[in-house]
């Protein structure tokens, strides 16, 4: 039993990784639930690629500084989401297609910028990160952003839920639907940007979407799904860090693979449309 706590008691860097990771998991996983409900699950992936040039620009101008890279990534992510939404609205191109068209542009310019900057920044570190590299400043940043994001999500929950379900109806009773939609996308970008410092831009997508996808097999109630996804993500961070510590493996992939295992188990054993434990569910006609 001791083995479950010992590394965190012993090492400050493990404690920071655990703290930061759990806070990130709790704020990112509920966003993943909404991404899935809005059929935008792959959009997180696209945005995660797209924030790279901003982070690279921040690195070029200010070196390995968290605020510079965060604001750079945030700017790039929001600009990309905004540009894709604008193109969609003006031309009727579907939102997934316009985002899929914008993010390779963003990603390629990011890689090019890194090459131009001449400084050595490990691209792999940006993409796949390392939770063990969370220092005091990064941790404070993560705590701040994640708790703000959680508070904001609670504040817009009512609007976001109805906008995800039936935007046409929300439009007839409230003008705040587009605002909730925009704030939600901002939160997604924000969490991805904070996450890429810790477990990498691509791994954080896994932490966002996998627990949410797994939760779907366990409940049909939105509040339950949100809490379940957050708890599952936090548990994956904890166990993933332990596993990476004892097996001396990179932490990001360990966390995400654990979430992946939880997802596969849910697909098999989940009571809501799971493959094995299909309890008689009323069939819609």
């Amino acid at each position: 039993m001791d083995a479950l706590w010992q590394p965190f008691v012993e090492f400050a860097f493990m404690r920071r990784a655990l703290f930061g990771g759990i806070v990130l998991a709790v704020s990112a996983a509920p966003l993943g639930v909404f991404l899935i409900l809005r059929r935008m699950s792959l959009i997180g992936d696209a945005i995660a690629h797209g924030i790279l040039p901003g982070a690279a620009l921040g690195f070029w101008l200010a070196g390995l500084s968290l605020p510079a890279m965060t604001f750079g990534g945030l700017g790039a992510g929001l600009a990309m989401a905004g540009l894709a939404a604008w193109i969609t609205r003006r031309t009727g191109l579907r939102e997934d297609a316009s985002l899929a068209a914008i993010y390779p542009i963003s990603l390629a310019s990011g890689v090019l910028l890194l090459g131009l900057s001449g400084k050595r920044l490990d691209l792999l570190h940006l993409l796949f990160g390392s939770a063990l590299a969370v220092d005091e400043t990064t941790l404070h940043g993560m705590l701040l952003v994640a708790s703000a994001s959680l508070v904001l999500l609670v504040a817009i929950y009512r609007w976001l839920a109805l906008d995800s379900f039936d935007p046409l109806f929300l439009r007839s009773v409230s003008r705040l639907g587009p605002l909730a939609h925009g704030l939600f996308l901002t939160l997604v970008v924000l969490n991805l940007v904070v996450g890429f410092q810790a477990i990498g831009a691509l791994m954080v997508v896994g932490l966002m979407v996998l627990p949410a996808a797994a939760a779907r097999f366990w409940s049909r109630r939105l509040p339950v799904l949100l809490i379940l996804a957050a708890l599952l993500a936090a548990a994956c961070v904890w166990l993933g860090l332990l596993f990476s510590y004892y097996a001396a493996l990179p932490s990001g992939p360990c966390i995400v693979l654990l979430a992946g295992a939880a997802y596969l188990i849910s697909v098999l054993a989940g009571p809501v449309h799971g493959l094995l434990r299909r309890i008689p569910s009323p069939i819609a006609t």
Partner: peptide, 14 residues
């Protein structure tokens, strides 16, 4: 307004 066909997701957890 009641639309002729509902565009929402019947799997939505509500």
């Amino acid at each position: 307004y009641l639309a002729q066909q509902q565009s929402f997701d019947r799997q939505f957890p509500i």
